[in-house]
Each structure stands twice: as structure tokens, then as C-alpha cells.
Write a protein that binds this DNA or RNA. Structure first.
Length: 218
DNA sequence: AAGTATCG
DNA sequence: CGCT
């Protein structure tokens, strides 16, 4: 008999989790059990802290639109990348991490072999058709021993998962609504990105993909 | 370079 | 498309 827990994890002997490399795994459909709570929370967050396009330190506009929830939020401008406690647009603190976000991040990390992970930042990335995120490393967090938990909602995307050098070969990983990728340990500093989105439609989110990436910044 | 344009 |  196959059983499924609150977060959709398989308990039967044949797992659907897909290992990308040492320290990185895709949890297919892991976020689906909390789908409606996650979508409601995204709407509440973006009503308070709207998606906006940020500038890279080089002064170029990112095609991904971003906002944050939690005590700290990731921002980029001409001065560089950093985590900050307030939304620079409004001067207000970022919206708090909703309980459903916290449950998802903690459970996915534990499931992937990182028990005790508790995020203090969630970066929300909005992709529309044509939007991309070029290869980069997440290296602005204080403790690089702690993992990244990345949940996909809405239309599908191709996730790029490379190596520790920008020029290393890249795995192309199709991601669907509800999939969660967790990477840490030996994989924590691997380059990653997203190919330009293909035009598509999702019943709940329309022509849009929203990625939630959870981190322990401080 | 969390970009883009350009070349082969 | 992959590379610079």
C-alpha cells in the first residue's frame, strides 16, 4: 500500500525523489498538499510587497520580478547584493513568513537530509514567458552549510543545475507546479539558473511561474 | 555578470 | 545552439 503524508512525500519503497548529485534532490509534487495555502499566502505577500524588477550591480534590469517574505529579504542594486530587513521601495519590513511557507521549507529540507533547517528569508521570483535567470551562485548567506529550498508554482520551467565553476557542464531539470528542489552540503555553491520560459498557461496562476526560494540568511 | 550581444 |  502506498501512503502519502501531508507534504506529498512517497512512503512506498519506490521513491519519486530524483537525486541530481551529492547534496541535491528534486522532490516531485512535494508542495501540492499545501497548494491552496501557498497560493493564498503569495497573494497576501504581493499585495503588501509587490513584485518589482531589480537592477544588477552592473546596472542592468533583471527579467525576473522579485519580492520577499520573512525577517530578511534579498535585494540587488548598483551597490551589490545583500539581505535587508526592510523593503527598499516602501521602507516597511518584509511581510512575515506565512505558516504554510515555514511548514513547507522545514519539511522539504528535513526530507532531503537537512533536519533542523529553519529559514529566515523567502525570495519570491515571478517568471513570465521569456523570463530567464542566468547561471549564478547563492553566496550571500552567512552560513553556507545550510541548504536552499526552492519550490515551483505555476507554469513549467527548465532548471539549470551546474557545478562549482561557471563553465562546468549543466543538468537541465524540467520543473512542474509543486516540485521542490533542495540543495546543500557539497552542492550548496553549485551554479544554477532557469532557461527562458516557454509561453504556457496554468489554471491557478495563468501565464506565470512563481518560485519560492527559502534560505537562512543570518 | 542573479546580463546581453555577437560570432561561428 | 553553445561559447566568449
Amino acid at each position: 500500500m502506498i501512503t502519502t503524508d501531508l507534504f506529498g512525500a512517497n512512503h512506498d519503497p519506490v521513491r519519486r525523489d530524483e537525486r541530481l548529485c551529492d547534496g541535491a534532490v528534486v522532490l516531485r509534487g512535494f508542495a501540492l498538499a499545501e497548494e491552496s495555502a501557498l497560493l493564498q499566502a503569495v497573494a497576501a505577500i504581493t499585495a503588501q510587497a509587490p513584485f518589482r524588477h531589480q537592477l544588477t550591480p552592473g546596472g542592468l534590469r533583471m527579467s525576473v520580478a522579485m519580492t520577499n517574505a520573512g525577517p530578511l529579504g534579498w535585494t540587488s542594486d548598483r551597490r551589490g547584493y545583500r539581505y535587508a530587513p526592510r523593503d527598499p521601495d516602501s521602507g516597511e519590513p518584509w511581510p512575515p513568513l506565512p505558516p504554510a511557507f515555514m511548514r513547507l521549507a522545514v519539511a522539504a529540507a528535513a526530507h532531503a537530509g537537512f533536519p533542523g533547517f529553519v529559514p529566515d528569508a523567502c525570495l519570491l521570483n515571478r517568471y513570465e514567458p521569456g523570463t530567464r535567470l542566468s547561471l549564478h551562485q547563492d553566496r550571500d548567506e552567512r552560513d553556507l552549510g545550510l541548504p536552499i529550498v526552492s519550490a515551483s508554482l505555476g507554469i513549467p520551467a527548465v532548471f539549470l543545475f551546474g557545478g562549482l565553476q561557471r563553465t562546468d557542464p549543466v543538468q537541465r531539470v524540467p520543473l512542474a507546479h509543486g516540485d521542490v528542489v533542495v540543495w546543500g552540503g557539497a552542492a550548496r555553491l553549485r551554479f544554477h539558473g532557469v532557461l527562458p520560459l516557454k509561453p504556457n498557461h496554468h489554471p491557478a496562476l495563468g501565464e506565470c511561474r512563481i518560485n519560492l526560494s527559502f534560505r537562512r540568511a543570518d
